[in-house]
């Protein structure tokens, strides 16, 4: 797995950073010349993961959210979104579509969206330590010379 390019960003778990996070990730991914749909998929998945950090991981406190975006040889994007928040007790339950601990205004679709809009998703979580979501998506190559 050869890394072609990488960026790291971190920011406070404020809800107005949700749009910041997806804009930064999509700006970095642009160098692979993705389609509008591929870019929208990535933005949506990032938005879900960052929202989870804000509403769940750091529910009672302000914390830091860390994102690493890598461009991997062959046109693959890898996005890691990490928090040092409360962790997820039951990952299977959390990933179940429509499962939510937040009541009426949350659809319980965060993980379902990430799974559907990205090729691969892996969740690592330790209660009391935090959660790391790793997502991957291959960008279909259209133009040459974009490396």
């Amino acid at each position: 797995m050869k890394i072609i390019n990488e960026t790291n960003i971190s920011f406070m778990s404020k809800s107005n950073n949700e749009s910041f996070a997806r804009s930064v990730v999509s700006a970095f991914v642009l160098q692979l010349d993705p389609t509008i749909t591929e870019l929208a998929d990535i933005k949506t998945a990032v938005s879900e993961a960052v929202t989870n950090c804000i509403v769940h991981a750091y529910k009672y406190e302000m914390g830091t959210i860390y994102i690493t975006v890598r461009i991997i040889e062959g046109g693959k994007i890898q996005i890691k979104i990490r928090d040092k928040g409360c962790g997820i007790e039951n990952i299977h339950e959390a990933m179940e579509p429509l499962f939510t601990t937040m009541g009426g205004e949350r659809a319980g679709l965060g993980f379902a969206v990430m799974q559907s809009f990205m090729d691969k998703i892996r969740v690592n979580s330790k209660v009391g330590k935090g959660t790391t979501i790793t997502m991957e998506k291959s960008i279909i190559r259209r133009a040459k010379n974009n490396e």
Binding site: S47, E48, G104, R106
Partner: peptide, 16 residues
Amino acid sequence: QFMDSSGIGLVMGRFR
């Protein structure tokens, strides 16, 4: 222009 699952939550909440 853009929405994530919060848009779905918004619709479900207004439905109720």
